[in-house]
Amino acid sequence: MGAGKHTIVFDYKPAEPGLGKGGTGVLSVDGKEVAKNSMEHSTPITFPEDETFDIGQDTRTGVALLEYRYDSPFTFTGTINKVTFKLEPEPVKAEEREPMQKTVARARD
C-alpha cells in the first residue's frame, strides 16, 4: 500500500449456520481482493476472556505464533481514521447453544 488513504475490508461468511462452523474470508484493499481463504472450524463459544479487543495495538499476547510473528503492543505506525464492524444475525438455534453454554457456566466458577 502506497502512502495516503486506503480502505481495508475483511468480509467473512460462515459455510453454514451453527456453532463453530467453518467459513470463508475475503480481504480487500480499496475494493480489490488481495486474499481469500477458508477454514474448517471456527471458535464456537468464546475468545479468551483474559485478553481484550484493541484497535491500533495488541495488548497482552499476540495472535500470531510463527508466521507473521510480532511483539506486542505492535502499535500501528500509520493513522487509523475509522474502523467499522457490521454484524449479521447469529443463525444458531437456542437448543444447540444450551449444552455448550451449560459447560461454560459450570466451568466458570
Binding site: M1, H6, I8, Y12, P48, I55, N81, V83, K86
Partner: peptide
C-alpha cells in the same frame, strides 16, 4: 462468532509504509 461480519478499516499510510495492528481480539 458464528455469524457473517464485515470489518472496514480506513487508514492513512505514511510515506515509507506502515506496520502494526489495526484491530484484534484475543491472543495466543
Amino acid at each position: 462468532l458464528n455469524k457473517s461480519y464485515t470489518i472496514t478499516a480506513e487508514v492513512t499510510i505514511p510515506s515509507g509504509g506502515a506496520e502494526g495492528m489495526i484491530v484484534t481480539q484475543g491472543g495466543r
